[in-house]
Amino acid sequence: MTTALITGATAGIGAAFARRLATDGHNLVLVARNTARLQEQATELHDRHGIEAEVLTADLGTEDGIALVEKRLADSRHSIDLLVNNAGFGNKGQFLDVPMADELMMLKVHCEAVLRLTSAAVPGMRERGRGGVVNVASVAAFLPRGTYGASKAWVVQFTQGAARDLSGSGVRLMALCPGFVRTEFHERAGMGTDNIPGWMWLDADKLVTAALADLARGKSLSIPDPRYKALMGAVKLAPRGLLGGVASKTGRKYGPQ
């Protein structure tokens, strides 16, 4: 039986990955900051699906938290077959409104943690000739949206570059770029969502189903919804200045995830 490790596993897209992978019979390593929520989630998934669900409490905004998950990923005795780097957050406010400590924390979680955890997981996968990594980015990666969009753009570029370097190894890397998803993401960041049209909202469980199908097809980039695929196609053709105006109206604080 294969094992998947999911960061940010207790809510939103991470919880949807956990539900789907448990349904499919995968054992899980669930990573988040809240031990009580992790234990509750692990018990529920074990009881419902008969899988083993390991709990790993770690804050990926800290050196100790990243190192703890790195160690688990590198454990050859209990190998990880699929890594889902999902942990992330948004900051409310425009450039210079957000404290520098919060901006640096975002880069640590969105970029440094993704780099280090991917680097910890992939050597064992390559040695076994199989495995996968899903790095959750955002369609904000393709828009000028401050630190959030820039960090997600880094995730996309890093993942696609690493996927190319690992071609033929049996290890698949994919950047997942969702749009607005109905999760706790915006509430935790204190962000209002009243100005987001209803058609832009995605269901987390359907998103995960599409993402896993794209991973199985060997895609290095997944935009798992026809509406957002069309929107991102239009973005590629739009003048950069116009995109900046649109992004400022929706606000950097409304980074999709």
Rank of each mutant, 00 (worst) to 15 (best):
S167L: 15
A150I: 03
I196L: 02
A153I: 02
Q160E: 11
S151P: 06
G192S: 02
V136P: 02
L83S: 11
M106H: 10
Q94F: 05
L176W: 03
S76M: 05
N86E: 13
A162E: 09
L117T: 09
L83N: 13
D97L: 09
A162L: 15
L176H: 05
Q157C: 00
D194F: 01
L83V: 12
A153V: 04
M106C: 08
H186W: 05
P99C: 13
R164K: 14
P144R: 10
N86D: 15
E112F: 07
R128G: 07
R182S: 00
R145N: 14
L96N: 15
A113V: 06
L117N: 11
V98R: 11
A162G: 04
A87H: 09
T193D: 06
M191R: 07
A140M: 04
G179Q: 01
G149N: 08
G90T: 13
P99L: 13
L143I: 05
I196H: 02
D102S: 14
P123T: 06
D102N: 12
R130L: 01
V84I: 15
R126A: 13
A141W: 05
A175W: 10
G124H: 05
V155G: 06
H186L: 13
N86W: 10
P99V: 13
E127M: 03
L173D: 14
A150N: 01
I196W: 00
M106K: 08
Q94R: 14
F142V: 06
G131L: 04
L104H: 14
L107H: 10
V156D: 06
L176G: 02
V171Q: 14
S76D: 15
V133A: 10
Y148S: 01
A137L: 01
E103N: 12
G132K: 12
M191D: 09
L82C: 07
A162R: 14
V155I: 12
A153L: 04
L104S: 01
C177I: 04
F185R: 07
K152D: 07
T147V: 10
M100K: 08
V139F: 07
A74Q: 14
L176P: 01
F95H: 00
G170I: 03
P178K: 07
K108E: 03
V139L: 08
T193E: 02
D81N: 13
V136Q: 04
L73N: 13
W154Y: 15
R172S: 15
G88R: 06
R116H: 07
K152L: 06
P123V: 10
S169G: 12
G146R: 00
A101S: 14
N91Y: 08
A175G: 10
R126F: 04
C111L: 03
G124T: 06
V133G: 11
G124R: 08
S138F: 03
K108F: 01
R126K: 12
T193Q: 00
S151C: 08
V133W: 11
F142M: 12
A74P: 06
